[in-house]
Design a protein around this nucleic acid. Structure first.
Lengths: 235, 235
DNA sequence: AAGTGGTCTAGACCACTTC
DNA sequence: AAGTGGTCTAGACCACTTT
């Protein structure tokens, strides 16, 4: 706990004090000036410590009043979704250009019939099919298809050279959806069986959809894990 | 864009410069001293601006070298899972004490037969059942059941007075799972149908499971939404 | 040796809240 | 008026990296 850095010590002490309930939610912690005197340091250093706790979601400053202890937040979960198959490898099923059907056109904010690049992959884990992955995005005339996709492993990367860096964002929807017959067959599921489906839409900074992807997980294979509120020690 | 705060302006300028690719990933941005001269300000103020971009995941400082531009991260999604039913209300189906079966005992790291509090609820949206929610946690002798649960709306709150503040954390698993007959019947699903299932385990700071909850979503009702990498403007 | 980021000081003035 | 947090300065010294 005891480091050589003043600001670290202050932050650690306050975090511990809040953790054991010495300062309860909605209560105030000592003021910046008080802490500066207590620790025989400058206000700047105290503020550095308080910024850390603020970023950790433990306190919130209120101008003219003081720093208030926040209640822990248990509703926010973080989920790590890597597009690139990690363990078992993958296999390309199809790289093609097709007209958009109603559903895809809707997802991409385009008209039905718009030509789309479609890329279908099968993902494996332990040698058996674990997920069926498909991606769609508008086809730009004269663009080489296969080299492009094979070069970019991650989904959004396909767009990063067409768009400004950080000019895209992604939305994700998770549900249990009846999979198309072809998908069920490929994954060894019963026809019409509901599978865990993760859909992602990529948006430009102008909030225009520019890509749509969907991944179906084989029965018993699809478990997403999310975490909230790690204990401070594991941070 | 132009504010009265020097540090804000620096941060905004640099963020924009990185966004249009003036500084590409893995490249370095100007040094603290350079920026301080450029903006005719102090190093402290420059550092404040750089801390902002660092927290936004845009740059990473490297001691002795400089600040490097990071590649955008598209794998991390945030998901908001509120335990408390928001719109359509809810109805308690059962509040009871039962012995743990094998599965529950496993989830709670306890022995089968351990007495558990079980709370089952039905959630509604637009008047129709939308989800079946059940929670389990060890029964402590002599504790009043109903008042406790009715008083705490959020799941982890049940534990927050037994444990130190922020002394618990939560894990979440999402899958398409065959629901028990009772659940299917209650939700109007076919027996054995796979439903979107969100399970949460609450852990103490010592990483001991202290609570387990599961929510089954009615067919077509279960969609979780997650977001990654909002554009800076929407932040 | 020179340049970089990391820590820290001892002030200043402003904006907000409470008394 | 007094206390609080918010912004900002002009230095200092240290630790790390490169030349």
């Amino acid at each position: 706990m005891e480091t050589n850095y003043v600001y670290r010590n202050i932050a650690d002490d306050l975090r511990a004090a809040i953790s054991i309930g010495k300062y309860a939610p909605d209560e105030m912690i000592p003021s910046e000036n008080t802490l500066a005197v207590q620790y025989n340091t400058s206000r700047v250093t105290v503020r550095k410590a308080l910024h850390i706790l603020e970023n950790e979601g433990m306190i919130r400053p209120q101008h003219g009043k003081g720093y208030f202890v926040l209640s822990p937040e248990y509703n926010r979960f973080e989920i790590d979704f890597v597009d690139k198959p990690s363990g078992g490898g993958s296999q390309y099923l199809e790289i093609n250009v097709v007209p958009a059907d109603e559903e895809l056109a809707h997802h991409l904010g385009a008209n039905a019939g718009t030509m789309l690049v479609v890329i279908r992959r099968m993902l494996f884990s332990d040698g058996t099919p674990s997920a069926y992955d498909e991606k769609f995005f508008p086809y730009v005339k004269g663009e080489p298809l296969i080299e492009r996709e094979l070069h970019y492993a991650q989904f959004p990367d396909v767009f990063t050279d067409k768009y400004v860096p950080r000019g895209i964002w992604t939305n994700m929807e998770i549900g249990a959806v009846s999979a198309p017959p072809a998908v069920c067959a490929a994954l060894g599921a019963q026809t019409g069986e509901k599978l865990l489906c993760v859909s992602r839409t990529v948006y430009s900074s102008g909030n225009q959809p520019i890509g749509f992807g969907r991944r179906w997980y084989a029965p018993e294979k699809g478990i997403l894990t999310a975490v909230s509120n790690r204990t401070p020690e594991t941070r």
